[in-house]
Amino acid sequence: KLPPGWEKRMSRSSGRVYYFNHITNASQWERPSGNSSSG
């Protein structure tokens, strides 16, 4: 399961899957890690 705020999306241009955070408006190709504590 993804960390809070993150969701899986697909890029229309490349067709690749990326991850988008609707809370911080951040996007990245790598899967966000939800196990590590923020610090």
Rank of each mutant, 00 (worst) to 15 (best):
F20Y: 15
S11L: 11
H22F: 14
S33R: 07
G34E: 15
Y19M: 00
P4W: 08
R9S: 02
W6P: 00
Q28M: 04
P3D: 04
E7C: 05
Y18R: 02
K8Q: 13
H22D: 05
N35Y: 07
N21Q: 02
V17Q: 05
G15M: 05
G39Q: 11
S14G: 09
V17H: 09
T24M: 03
R16M: 08
P32D: 01
H22C: 14
W29S: 07
N21M: 01
H22L: 14
R12L: 11
R31W: 12
G15Y: 02
R9G: 02
P32Y: 00
A26Q: 15
Q28P: 00
N25R: 13
T24S: 08
W6R: 00
S27Q: 08
F20K: 04
N35D: 14
L2Y: 03
H22T: 15
Y18N: 01
A26T: 14
K1W: 14
T24R: 02
R12D: 09
T24N: 06
W29F: 09
G34T: 11
V17I: 14
R9V: 06
P32T: 01
R31L: 10
V17K: 04
W29Y: 10
Q28K: 03
G5I: 02
R12N: 10
S11D: 15
S14Q: 08
S36R: 08
R9N: 02
P4R: 07
G15I: 01
E7Y: 05
K1V: 14
R16F: 07
R31K: 11
K1H: 13
Y18W: 07
G34Y: 14
F20G: 01
K8I: 15
G39V: 11
Q28G: 02
R31V: 13
R16T: 07
S36T: 13
S13Q: 10
Y18F: 09
S13N: 09
Y19K: 00
R31I: 10
N21V: 01
L2V: 06
G5H: 08
G34W: 15
P3Y: 02
W29V: 07
S27Y: 14
Y19L: 00
P4Q: 07
P4E: 10
K1Q: 14
G15L: 04
S37M: 12
I23H: 09
E30I: 04
S38H: 10
I23S: 06
